[in-house]
């Protein structure tokens, strides 16, 4: 077997960037974090580069042994040109050519994709999807997205949006979605949509279990909901039940996999 080679990975999110040094055999050598909450890319990008260089130095890996860099960010992005377009929770990142910046800084090839595809690839290569030919990775967080592996390849589609399953419409008369349409899966089951719905419905119920658990209306989130479900609160259980029913309705409609991995 060939000697494993080192890769630097950057997972750029709305609050932090996970920087990691991984070997091609799946060994996670080391990792660190760079804050990215309401920060300018002009500050964050150099910090990412020095974090990556520190990981290499601390592991005693000379820079010329680094094989490549991989980076993922939330959508929307320009996949072909390696540009972050201005994701809703990273408003200061407008048209940032992140892929080529990292390639130049590290002097190696850099590769780029959206965070749902990247997480799907990670679960496929090193997690619950190891060895399968077809799988759908679902990420259920603030929004809902997917990474689709079909016949041993990542499915991108013509505009690289193949995994955008969160905007499949389950009910054209349903609740309004962030995207402007009505009744998307994400409008029913996305973390942000559910939190907003609970804040609306509980606005005049300061004594409800959920408001009490959250401390205030604005603090209500998915964690509050799951805590209230565990405490058997009837309202929370009804919200949860409705969400699970929409998840059940949607999951089989997303591209048919022969093995599916989900994460929350």
């Amino acid at each position: 077997m060939a000697k494993p080679f080192p890769i630097l990975g950057f997972d750029v999110g709305g609050t932090k960037v996970a920087v990691s040094l991984v070997l091609s055999d799946g060994t996670l050598v080391a990792s660190s974090r760079v804050p990215n909450k309401e920060r300018e890319p002009d500050d964050v990008l150099p910090a990412m580069v020095s974090a990556g260089k520190s990981l290499l130095a601390d592991a005693g890996i000379p820079r010329e042994e680094l094989k490549a860099v991989g980076v993922c960010t939330p959508s929307p992005l320009d996949f072909k040109r390696g540009i972050v377009m201005a994701p809703p929770n990273m408003k200061m990142w407008k048209h940032v050519p992140i892929r080529d910046f990292l390639a130049e800084e590290f002097g190696v090839r850099a590769f780029f994709d959206n965070d749902a595809n990247a997480s799907g690839l990670a679960e496929w290569l090193f997690g619950s999807g190891v060895g399968v030919q077809d799988m759908l990775y679902l990420t259920m967080s603030t929004g809902i997205g997917a990474g689709v592996i079909a016949n041993g390849h990542l499915l991108r589609g013509a505009t690289c949006d193949a995994g955008e399953v969160g905007h499949m419409i389950l009910d054209a008369n349903g609740p309004l979605c962030n995207c402007g349409l009505r009744g998307c899966w994400e409008a029913f089951s996305g973390g942000r949509a559910i939190a907003q719905r609970m804040q609306r419905e509980l606005a005049d119920k300061p004594n409800s279990t959920i408001v009490k658990l959250a401390g205030s209306l604005e603090n209500i989130d998915m964690k509050t909901l799951s805590d209230a479900v565990l405490a058997n609160d009837p309202y929370a259980c009804a919200v949860w039940d409705g969400m699970m029913e929409r998840n059940a309705q949607s999951s089989p409609s997303a591209p048919s996999p022969s093995s599916a991995a989900t994460s929350s």
């Binding site: 997972d11 990792s31 993922c72 850099a110 590769f111 679960e123 619950s128 991995a261 994460s263």
Partner: peptide, 21 residues
């Protein structure tokens, strides 16, 4: 099935993009 990487998902995501490429 649930994902297996859990809190390590972010650590593997970026590198997986490069490895798959």
């Amino acid at each position: 099935v649930p994902g297996k990487l859990g809190s390590k998902l972010g650590e593997y995501a970026g590198a997986s993009v490069a490895l798959y490429a």
